[in-house]
Computed example of a mutant assay.
Amino acid sequence: MGKAYFKQSNGMYAVNIVAACGVMTPGQMEGLGKAARECGVFRLKLTTRQTIVAIIDEQNLSSLVDRLADLELMVSPYGNAVRAVKACAGSEALCPRALGDALDLGIKLQEKYLGRETPKDVKIAVAGCPRGCTDPLCADIGIIARNVDSFDVYLGGRGGSAKPVHGSLIAEKVTEAGVFKLFDHTLKAYASLAQPVERISAVVARMGIDPFLPPKELIAINSAGEPEDEDFLSFLGLKGSDAS
């Protein structure tokens, strides 16, 4: 595993900075802005992985990095490791369409798994409803909330490619505690099955999804009634039909 420092065509360096699934306090934002000014950062850019890239001269790089810890920020791991988690704003407090608390789960997953060594980089995406604003079906591991403390988990998606792949459903209506047990099982299976630098999607294509399926006794499910997402059903043309 390495750290996300990348030399740019203009000779400057890009530093990929991780927050809690893109969530920052005003103090962190203010502190990062101050550090960026004082360290001569050329530009700051938001990324699709909910991180912030700072473009900076090489001689100022260490000064900026040294100040991140005081802000409870860090440089993203890169390479054969679990990457920064993407999570939407799905929660009761932030999104009226959320069926479950995707943001809180995403932050907890990042706190536990970020930087864990894997055969190839692993990207995780969590969504609070079937709209999937974080593209969970195109992540190595994707999670979609169905209800409070009830999530569907997908494996083997791949985005950022001319031939994107949707992940396969490996567990339904999993509780939050079950998600963590499932993650541990999945990462262990991936480590044992993968060839060197082989993505999860490639392992699934080579071996099928069955080797990754968890034993039924491993995870608890939540079978409580699920609220209908009327806007989404309307978008699919299912509202009011027998298919809904």
Score class of each variant (00 low, 15 high):
Lys239Met: 07
Gly33Cys: 13
Gly31Ile: 09
Leu46Ser: 13
Gly132Tyr: 02
Pro214Ala: 15
Leu236Trp: 10
Ala177Thr: 05
Gln28Ser: 11
Gly132Glu: 03
Val53Arg: 04
Pro26His: 11
Val65Pro: 00
Arg146Tyr: 03
Ser241Leu: 12
Pro96Tyr: 04
Arg67Asp: 06
Val82Gln: 04
Ala19Gln: 10
Ala205Phe: 02
Ala202Trp: 03
Gly11Trp: 06
Ala194Lys: 10
Thr51Val: 06
Gly167Lys: 04
Gly115Ser: 07
Asp210Leu: 05
Gly22Arg: 05
Ala89Glu: 02
Ser201Glu: 05
Leu137Ser: 01
Leu236Val: 12
Val126Asp: 02
Leu218Asn: 09
Ser76His: 06
Leu155Ser: 07
Val174Arg: 00
Asn16Ser: 08
Ser244Ala: 15
Asp229Ser: 11
Arg158Cys: 09
Ala84Pro: 14
Ser91Met: 07
Leu61Ser: 14
Gly167His: 03
Leu114Arg: 08
Ala139Asp: 01
Lys173Gln: 14
Ala89Lys: 09
Ala69Phe: 07
Ser76Arg: 04
Pro119Arg: 05
Ile56Pro: 00
Gly237Cys: 08
Lys181Phe: 09
Ala243Ser: 10
Ala177Met: 05
Arg83Gln: 14
Thr175Gln: 02
Ser244Asn: 07
Arg83Glu: 13
Ala220Tyr: 02
Asp149Cys: 13
Gly142Asp: 05
Glu30Arg: 15
Cys39Ser: 12
Ala171Asp: 01
Met207Pro: 00
Val53Phe: 04
Glu176Trp: 00
Ala14Arg: 13
Gly2Lys: 08
Glu30Phe: 12
Pro119Gln: 14
Gly167Trp: 00
Arg49Ala: 15
Pro164Gln: 14
Leu182Ile: 13
Leu73Ser: 03
Val85His: 02
Leu187Asp: 03
Asp101Thr: 05
Gly115Glu: 09
Glu72Ser: 15
Pro214Gln: 11
Phe183Asp: 01
Tyr5Val: 04
Arg199Lys: 13
Ala220Trp: 05
Val174Lys: 00
Ala81Leu: 08
Gly225His: 14
Ala14Pro: 01
Val179His: 02
Pro196Tyr: 07
Glu72Met: 12
Ile170Arg: 00
Ala224Asn: 15
Val203Tyr: 03
Tyr154Pro: 01
Ser62Leu: 13
Asp140Tyr: 02
Val153His: 01
Val85Ala: 07
Ala205Gly: 07
Arg131Ser: 12
Ala127Thr: 11
